[in-house]
Nucleic acid binder design. Structure first.
Lengths: 239, 239
DNA sequence: GCAATAGTGTCTTTAAGACACTATCAT
DNA sequence: ATGATAGTGTCTTAAAGACACTATTGC
């Protein structure tokens, strides 16, 4: 074993041509009945002043994993920690970044608009873009493709889980979840089907309160603590 | 824009402390009615002589993506190109490799035993390990956890697709697919349900031939060319 | 009372589970 | 002919789709 010790003593990572590694996040939220993603204006070269995903380099002295890098960057750039954060995929190749061969670990995240609006509204270098308007914006690198992949994953997951709750405030009504689901999927779903799933999931409890939403008051619910995220064995809208 | 050109001219990737980046693959096959993964004996430090996943460093001069790195390493170490290869996840952190903060892009792959047996049987530094015996082997780094994650993904995907076909030879019978599915899931499934899915998928065509498997001859099938991989909207064994 | 949204009841539909039945082959 | 595996028919079941119905609230 001393040969391994010897080896490690002489090991110098910089000898090898390594790819550039970054971590980027696609943060979704709902606002004004539209699904939006967070873009930040790039402060540095390359592609300075273009809009891109919040992300950056791993800080090997502070981050225990790329999840922590993603969370740290979201905190720095948007002042938020999302209620849902999951790895999406990696994107790599020699062309996607002008500095050379690069690899980005992409995450996607959901947050309630109310949980981050104050910070983001106050700064000029971060903005929420409705996904439907993304085609009009020239985004940095291949970030457009990353957002599309995240959107696809989000829609898939919406069909077999209640992931849209993570776009809602801590307490919410079943109607809000229904609306969120329809906005994400971009098409109507049966109210009854959603409520059946809501009950079957065992993930929620009533707060005991109700709020008026214009007509009859609706009950408020919250996620139970320490209940694991339910995945259904069928998709909604089975095509 | 000349400032970006200027920036890139002076850019030196080696200035930043970057993580060590590798690409590893979990290659599955079926042999003797058991699900196996390919492990290779590590030729170099660290952890020389331990068994680990086939993988290695990205060659930025040759690989157009980490997918190509994965394929190249599988060719070098096992002499095969798998019929299915999909990104699993990334694994990262300061502790998983003694050389320092590391990140591996993990892929999982399927191949028919017959398509790779000749090469692997002939070398002493690669072997198929039944997944049930993995606990008895001290694998390198966190490769045990990576295999478990790949196994979980494979089982999930088996419940909503016909992915086990990629463990079968080019032509195969419905019974072989049935057996493969049961072996991967580790539990019996309804023959009829599988055949219904087989037809509904539209992915296969008869070769016109039959083979004797002991009793009545069974029809041989192959995957149609250029038909996309069918995903079902429900799981088998919906728990 | 009326309009609007919250919430329920229940019939239909889809695809899986269960399992029995028939068909074909080697011996 | 028999036993074994291939292949089909069909009833049951689980959960979604469809949609109508009742309940509650503000005005």
């Amino acid at each position: 074993m001393s040969s391994e010790v010897e080896y490690l003593k002489n090991y110098d990572a910089a000898r090898y041509t390594a790819p550039l590694v970054t971590v980027d996040s696609v943060l979704f939220t709902l606002h004004h009945q539209t699904l939006c993603v967070l873009l930040v204006k790039r402060a540095n070269q390359p592609q300075r002043d273009r809009w891109g995903l919040p992300g950056g380099f791993i800080d090997v002295t502070r981050d225990a994993s790329t999840r922590e890098t993603a969370l740290r960057k979201l905190t720095e750039k948007a002042g938020v920690s999302p209620s849902w954060l999951e790895q999406l995929d990696t994107f790599s190749g020699p062309q996607r970044d002008p500095r050379g061969w690069s690899l980005t670990v992409a995450w996607y995240a959901l947050i309630a608009w109310a949980d981050c609006a104050p910070h983001i509204e106050s700064v000029s270098d971060a903005q929420w873009i409705p996904v439907s308007e993304l085609t009009n914006i020239e985004t940095a690198f291949d970030h457009h493709a990353i957002v599309q992949a995240a959107l696809h994953r989000l829609r898939q997951k919406t069909m077999y889980s209640l992931i849209p709750v993570f776009c809602l405030p801590e307490t919410f009504t079943q109607s809000q979840l229904h609306d969120a689901t329809e906005i994400i999927l971009g098409q109507p779903i049966q109210r009854k089907s959603l409520i059946r799933r809501f009950e079957a999931s065992g993930m929620f409890e009533e707060t005991g309160e109700s709020i008026a939403t214009g007509a009859r008051k609706a009950r408020l619910w919250r996620r139970k603590a320490d209940v694991d995220f339910h995945l259904f064995s069928r998709n909604l809208l089975a095509n």
